[in-house]
């Protein structure tokens, strides 16, 4: 989780990403930031995020992103 927090710190979002539950629906994460986030996640956690997983539900909160990483690693 610490690595994920580091990645989010680099993104410089205008919101407290630790508590935000609508990162995508609230448009804090735009398409380009999502692309940048995906490549970082894939490199850091050695996973491949299929495009079908790029849905708001998976990226709306840091908890959901962590759950996605855990699921894909498993």
């Amino acid at each position: 989780m610490e690595k994920l927090i580091d990645i989010f710190n680099e993104l410089n979002l205008d919101v407290d990403f630790m508590t935000c539950e609508n990162l995508v629906d609230g448009r804090y994460l735009d398409s380009l930031t999502i692309l940048s986030l995906i490549t970082e996640l894939e490199d850091t956690f050695d996973i491949e995020i299929p495009t079908v997983e790029i849905i708001p539900a998976n990226f709306n909160s840091i908890k959901n992103i962590w759950a996605l990483i855990t699921r894909l690693k498993g």
Binding site: L32, S36, T39
Partner: peptide
């Protein structure tokens, strides 16, 4: 991805995601 990985090495993550987009 191949193109942008190369770009990322030369420049940075922002340029590579810009190009990707």
């Amino acid at each position: 991805r191949k193109i942008t990985t190369f770009v990322k090495k030369v420049f940075n993550n922002r340029v590579s995601s810009l190009l990707m987009g």
